[in-house]
Nucleic acid binder design. Structure first.
Lengths: 178, 178
DNA sequence: GTGGAATGTCAACGCGTGTTGGCCTACAGT
DNA sequence: ACTGTAGGCCAACACGCGTTGACATTCCAC
C-alpha cells in the first residue's frame, strides 16, 4: 500500500480535471490521465467505474456567485467570473466539453438555471424578462472566456483584468437592470 | 460511372460539413460522412486524401461582412452574424471544432485578424484600440452563437432575431465606436 | 468492338481506445 | 509469525477508427 484510497482518488481526480480542461472529453484519455497520476489505467476504473463517471466527478462545479449590490452587479460579475475561471478548472472543463457533448451542455444549462438565473431574478425588478436578461449576461461572459482563454484572440488574451472589467461591466449592467 | 467526379466530391463535402457542424472533428467519422453520402469510405480518401484535408475543405469560410455606416454598424453586425450563422454551416464547423483543436482555433484567429479587424479599423477612429475593440465585438457575437445555438440556453434559443438585435446592438456599437 | 482510364467496392491493416479479470504485494490485526 | 485484505499492476479483450491496396464496373475514345 503506497497511498490511502482517498489520496489516490484525489490524485486521479486532480489529473483528470487538468486533462479534461486542457483537451476536452475525447482527447483526454484514461491512459493519459493515469500516466499523469503515475498510476495504472485500471486504477482509474476501479475508483471511478467509468470514464463518464470520472468526467462527472471532474465537472463538479459551483460558480459561488457572491451577493452583489444592484448598481455594481455588472462589474462584480465580470470580475468574479474572470477570477473564477483562472482559479477553478471546472468551468474550462465544462466549456471545452459542452460544445460537442450533450451531457456536458445539459450540465451547463443546469448551472445556468440554478445559479445564474436566481441571482438575476433577485437583482432585476423585471421577473418576466429575467430569463432573457440572464442568458444575455451568460452570452457575454462565456464569449469572454471563449475568446480570451480558449480561442485566445491576441488582444483579448493580452488585456488586463481591469481593462476587461471596464469594457464589459456596462454591458452586463445594462443586460441586468436597464 | 454513376456520377461525375465533381458531383461526388460535392456530395461528400456537403455531408462532411453537416457532420462536422453537428458533431465536431473527432465524432464526425469518415465512415459516417461516407454513409451520409451513400458512398464507400475509401472514396472520401480518394477525393480528399486525408481527414484533415477534408476538414480544411469543409471549414472554408468567408464572413462576407458588408459595408456598414458607422452609426448603424452595431445593429448591422448582429443581424448579419445571426443570418450568416443559420445560412452557412462553416461557422458552426469552426466553433464546434476550434474549442478542442488548435488548427481550427488558428483558423478562427486568422478569420478574426483578416476579416473582423480590418472592418473595425475602418469603422473606428481609434487605430490604437481597434484590435481590442474588434475582439470585444467578437466575444459578444461568439458568446451569442455559443449560448443560442450550441449550448442552447432556453431563453436565448427562443428569442427572436429582432429581440436579439435590439439587445445586442448597443453593446456592439459601444465596443466599436464609444 | 476493344483498350484504357475513370469511378466505385471490398476486405484488411495497424493503432489507440475503454474496459476487464487475474495476479502480485505490502501492510494491519491477531 | 500468519493470514486476510486493500491497493496496485499487467496482459488482454473487443471495438471503432483512419487509411491502404487490390479488385470490379462503367463509360468514353478510337
Amino acid at each position: 500500500m503506497r497511498r490511502s484510497s482517498a489520496e489516490t482518488k484525489a490524485v486521479i481526480l486532480a489529473a483528470a480535471r487538468e486533462r479534461f480542461a486542457a483537451d476536452g472529453y475525447d482527447k483526454a484519455t484514461i491512459r493519459a490521465i493515469a500516466a499523469d497520476a503515475r498510476i495504472d489505467p485500471a486504477m482509474v476504473m476501479r475508483y471511478f467505474g467509468t470514464k463518464e463517471k470520472l468526467f462527472a466527478a471532474a465537472a463538479e462545479f459551483d460558480l459561488e456567485l457572491p451577493e452583489l449590490a444592484p448598481d455594481q452587479a455588472g462589474a462584480g460579475l465580470v470580475r468574479h467570473f474572470l477570477r473564477k475561471w483562472e482559479a477553478d478548472e471546472g468551468l474550462q472543463v465544462l466549456l471545452r466539453t459542452g460544445v460537442t457533448n450533450e451531457a456536458a451542455a445539459e450540465r451547463m444549462r443546469t448551472i445556468f438555471a440554478g445559479q445564474v438565473m436566481p441571482l438575476v431574478i433577485g437583482l432585476t425588478g423585471d421577473p418576466e424578462r429575467a430569463p432573457l436578461r440572464a442568458s444575455l449576461v451568460a452570452s457575454q461572459l462565456l464569449g469572454l472566456a471563449l475568446s480570451r482563454y480558449i480561442l485566445q484572440f491576441p488582444p483579448m488574451a493580452a488585456a488586463t483584468e481591469e481593462e476587461l472589467v471596464a469594457w464589459l461591466s456596462p454591458t452586463v449592467q445594462r443586460y441586468l437592470t436597464e
